[in-house]
């Protein structure tokens, strides 16, 4: 498998990259780690005329605390997120989700930004980012804007990034006290992508009351989404196995599940409930300081 020919540019600064992206429009594709784009190019399903390699941009790979949130640079690899002490301490869900992606080699190379911009409907990160309600920063020659993650994934392989924009950063709010989160995934046996993946975040108040809940679901439909019906069914309730089971039933509400040779729509829908419950239970245990 060999990609079709293309013209290649490796800008050294973000500004330079943005100018190139602006100039070439949809004839150009942005290359970060390459683990979403290159497979498509090798299959020749994608044949961009220009490839703009942003992998060499300095200062776009970092995980740091600033202004009360954790900022993650778009070029940060899955492996860096998986092993980040800062994330493990303040937002272990992201580290856990990163560890669920592909395999060691893929995690060493694939980047957060590339993964999100590609918006594969079965990618792992989106579930966690939706559950965490993060913000995504898009840079352009006109400056940067932030996009709430809930408005970021528009459809299959389609995001709210506009032509000329480069995803530059993800901003995560550290988990509040008495909060637990977990990612549970049913992997496709060959590729490891999520048939269903559910990330759940629960904040507990006094007496085990659920004060806040965030549930992100991936793999089920054409885009990852926030399972608001599940969240609604949880908020204000006292946590229990029963409430998790009941709430999890809404995991696929309003979504027309995808179907393929690995899982029918019905099975995906059922598994969305099963995995939502599992994620909720584990998030709850963690919120209580267990597990």
């Amino acid at each position: 498998m060999i990609p079709a020919p293309f013209e290649y540019a490796a800008p050294k600064t973000l500004e330079e990259a943005l100018r190139l992206v602006e100039r070439h429009g949809d004839e150009a594709k942005i290359l970060a780690g390459g683990h979403s784009l290159l497979p498509l190019m090798k299959l020749r399903l994608a044949q961009p005329r220009y490839v703009i390699d942003i992998g060499r941009l300095r200062g776009m790979s970092y995980i740091r605390e600033e202004n009360g949130h954790i900022a993650i640079g778009a070029l940060t690899t899955h492996a860096e997120i998986e092993s980040s002490n800062l994330l493990r301490a303040k937002c272990p869900l992201l580290a856990e989700t990163a560890a669920a992606i592909g395999d060691v080699q893929v995690r060493n190379r694939g980047t957060l930004g590339g993964n999100l911009a590609h918006a594969d409907p079965a990618a792992d990160y989106p579930a966690a980012l939706l559950a965490l309600d993060v913000e995504i920063v898009a840079a352009s020659t006109a400056g940067a804007r932030t996009i709430p993650v809930n408005e970021f994934f528009l459809d299959m392989l389609t995001t709210a990034l506009r032509p000329g924009e480069i995803l530059s950063q993800v901003r995560v709010t550290p988990l509040a006290a008495h909060t637990g989160a977990a990612y549970e995934k049913l992997p496709q046996p060959a590729s490891g992508f999520a048939i269903v993946g559910v990330a759940a975040r629960l904040r507990l108040g006094k007496g085990g009351k659920i004060e806040d809940a965030g549930v992100g679901v991936t793999g089920l439909g054409p885009k990852a989404f926030r399972a608001e019906a599940v969240e609604k069914a949880l908020r204000g309730k006292k946590a229990s196995d029963k409430i998790f089971t009941d709430a999890a039933r809404y995991a696929a509400q309003g979504v027309e599940p995808l179907a393929d040779l690995h899982a029918s729509a019905d099975y995906r829908r059922e598994m969305a409930s099963v995995y939502t419950r599992r994620a909720l239970k584990r998030a709850f245990a963690r919120a209580q300081g267990k597990a």
């Binding site: 594709k29 784009l37 399903l45 994608a46 044949q47 590609h118 392989l157 389609t158």
Partner: peptide, 10 residues
């Protein structure tokens, strides 16, 4: 016709 979505188009 140019069909496709995002990067996958032909």
């Amino acid at each position: 016709v140019k069909f496709g979505i995002a990067a996958i188009s032909g």
